[in-house]
Amino acid sequence: MADFITSTHRKKWILSPQDLIKNCQAANQRAVEALQKYGATRVECQPDGTLAYPGAPIQGDSGQGSLPEPLTVAEELLVRRFYEQKIQQVSAAFSFPYKIQATAILYFKRFYQKWSVMEHDPKHIMLTCIYLSCKVEEFHVSAEELGKGIQQDPQVVLKNELTVLQASVSMYFELIVYTPYRSVDGFIYDLEELKLAAQFIVDSMMLTDAPLLFPPGQLALAALCTANREEPKVDFDRYLQNMPGRQRQRHSYAELMGVLDSIDLLVKDTNQPVEADVRRIDRKLKYCRNPGLQDEGKGKRERKVKQKQKRASHDIPMVNALDNSPLDLNEMHGVKRRQSEGDVML
């Protein structure tokens, strides 16, 4: 459900505040007039799309005094809000996916852009909206199940379906609606990507001097900042600008930026060791830690070299090379490749 740009939702159902006022007033006004004319505001939509006012027409002005008082626009709004909450409650009681209630609420709202709650019972319309939403979102619940679950006659659910659907009356059969839940997912997904990218940067940070030089918070910010720079997701600068004030930090924004830049630089400038170098240095390390190994090692090594020449294979996995030594990769930062030192120990 993703192409909002070309959707009927965007084209027809993003209204202005003026539209809302106008629509509600018009519906309210029509209901008030019906009340005066027919003695009741109730409207029934016939299956063929025509409308019927079941109230008996009032002759002259005689009945006027005994007429019930119509709802005001503000009262109508309140009633609608109430039933919108109910939609959430009913959907939660059925443990429908969140999309169902969101779609149902939008159907309900659209419906009452055309009608007054005085004309169509919001309690019934609410149920029909939930039922229709289930259908459209392909979450199949029978009218009977729905009715049973809330102790309502399933016929009530079905009765208004066409009314709610109907073209030229309420929703023009425009049934695909977009709700912010998916958008939240989308934005969080962006941020998840940012998180992954930042973690990746932290991985390489951990292999530098940086953890010894900077507090973790700053390292994290630097990582996020760098990740965001590579593929911008958020306005990080603004976030950072607010940060010093929020955290009562000693650093100003400029200082913070300076710190982050130096972290970034540090990470970039650190060469990661290559396996061959490490193996060589590890050997060196072993011997210098325990010079006694050297003579013993010489014989071993010569044998090894001979074997190697035989097999023409030099595939000693790095893990093995490091197995017996307390060497930690984190200590290896800053090792530059030096070409000529290779055979020092021999």
Binding site: D3, T6, Y131, K135, H140, A143, L162, L165, Y172, E174
Partner: peptide
């Protein structure tokens, strides 16, 4: 029994878009 046919509803909702 189940109101508007789901198949028809599918066709309507998608073709509108």
């Amino acid at each position: 029994k189940e109101g508007v046919n789901v198949t028809a509803l599918r066709e309507i909702k998608l073709l509108k878009e």
